[in-house]
Design a protein around this nucleic acid. Structure first.
Lengths: 267, 267
DNA sequence: TGAATAGTGTCTATAAGACAATATCCC
DNA sequence: GGGATATTGTCTTATAGACACTATTCA
């Protein structure tokens, strides 16, 4: 790294340290910064997400994404993981940054910018960690558009009753679904919605649930097996009332394990 | 929207207004929130980006992405547009949110989270608006990885001299290049790096510059023409010392004009 | 044995890569 | 005409969709 010659000066380090000592972060007003997590799962052919009932103002009584304010000593990713731990009782799930929402009036309290994350977990794990208390539920997502058209997404109870969403969370849910649909075909994320061992039909069912339409069975099998990320375990399905299918597991590529999240931003 | 029955209470609106009147945003410490813009262009086979020399601490003398703190009365997109206007003299360019960087120690002053945007502009426009003063330059990007492997990106002067980058801006540049490469094949963004009228060869050259490798000419032409987004103008190239090529222009699809940015987040 | 789904093989349609042939401009 | 690139057409190859057929389990 060649330093630009114009920057040469007597004692840069001491100079900078002196500057930092004088710096006052409260000099001008700051917005509030939050993280919200779209914790997605798939069950019975429907996409679902964890919602939490707000018991305080603003939007008291409405349903919101689990979220919280970012602490000064934690990274954004740590904040998202903390929210998942505290509000969903989950650790070690797939989490990725979704989008940052910063409309001026998105929160009536004051200016709140939220960095949204989405997390993927198989339904059994989520149901075990969140046995549907009165304060939280796994809502069914009702996506009123097809493909990656985008737009707000509605939430309802399993019975079909609509849930009133807080703030711009219907929009955030929509962006999450859009992102999932867009990434599903080229990124190894379908597996994250299934247990460690799964059949190809289960995987296809998950893809169809995310995409919102049926996919071709033959080419789906071929693509999955050709990807090299789906390997047979030798075990077979148990309870089926028909020929049991082979159980597979997800085996990451060399190129996996990295996402758009740059390592330096993960800390 | 059916309201959950448990939320019923005497006068919800007045209740919420009273709450908001009491709310104190300064109750707990807030991080600083900035936007940084990766203003990308392509010229002479190289990807380039606008950098600004920092004349204040921290990182004084180093080269940084144009950026600024977000004001309480502007959206994130407005802040990015303002930065482009103030630091690059540009308006009405393609801008899209890239990623939000929030490592605890990414800025030595205090906790600063930055929402990074990338903007695309054709080189002539950028050169006209930014005639390379001492404080800013259009740096050449040296990408030390291929495909979408990701990682830090180096910056240099046109002559080849390395430029010391401030903060985590080498990482941000890397994420921008990774995103560009990932989106180029399915999103109409190559056009944004060219003037309104262009030849197919120019478009191919832009794609090759972004991707960092040669692409097949025949299939490139076919794909572009089949996309329906490239329409002939009837005009032809002028200065060429060979058979002049037809000039085309970009014609958005019905499905274009929308990005991952949800409309509600754009204000 | 029948119902139901798993898994295999083959044919066809489509898109990409390769390459040859012709067209059109400037010098 | 020669140099250079544009543009068109054809052939080959890889992949997705369609479909027929066999395999295996449980009831």
């Amino acid at each position: 790294m060649t330093r630009d010659s114009k920057t040469a000066r007597p004692d840069p380090d001491r100079d900078e340290l002196a500057f930092l000592a004088r710096y006052d972060a409260a000099e001008f007003p700051h917005p509030s910064l939050a993280v919200d997590v779209v914790l997605v799962t798939a069950h019975e052919g429907r996409l679902r997400a964890l919602l939490v009932r707000r018991d305080e103002h603003p939007a008291k009584g409405r349903w919101a994404l689990p979220g919280g304010f970012v602490r000064l000593d934690e990274s954004l990713e740590e904040a998202a993981a903390r929210v998942l731990r505290e509000k969903a009782g989950l650790a070690d799930v797939f989490v990725e940054q979704l989008f940052t929402f910063g409309a001026v009036d998105r929160d009536p309290r004051t200016r709140v910018i939220t960095v949204a994350y989405y997390a993927l977990v198989d339904h059994e794990r989520l149901a075990a960690a969140n046995p549907g208390s009165g304060d939280s539920l796994v809502a069914v997502l009702d996506v009123p558009w097809s493909g990656v058209a985008g737009g707000a997404v509605r939430a309802q109870r399993t019975g079909g009753e609509s849930l009133a969403l807080a703030f711009d969370h219907a929009i955030i849910l929509g962006v999450a679904v859009e992102r999932l649909r867009g990434k599903l075909d080229y990124a190894p994320i379908g597996f994250e919605l299934l247990p460690a061992h799964f059949t190809l039909r289960q995987l296809q069912h998950v893809h169809e649930t995310v995409l919102g339409h049926a996919v071709n069975k033959d080419s789906f099998r071929r693509r999955m097996l050709a990807s090299g990320r789906v390997v047979a375990t030798g075990q077979r399905e148990r309870d089926a009332s028909h020929r049991p299918a082979e159980l597979y597991r997800f085996e990451p590529n060399e190129t996996d394990g990295r996402t758009l999240t740059p390592p330096a931003a993960r800390r």
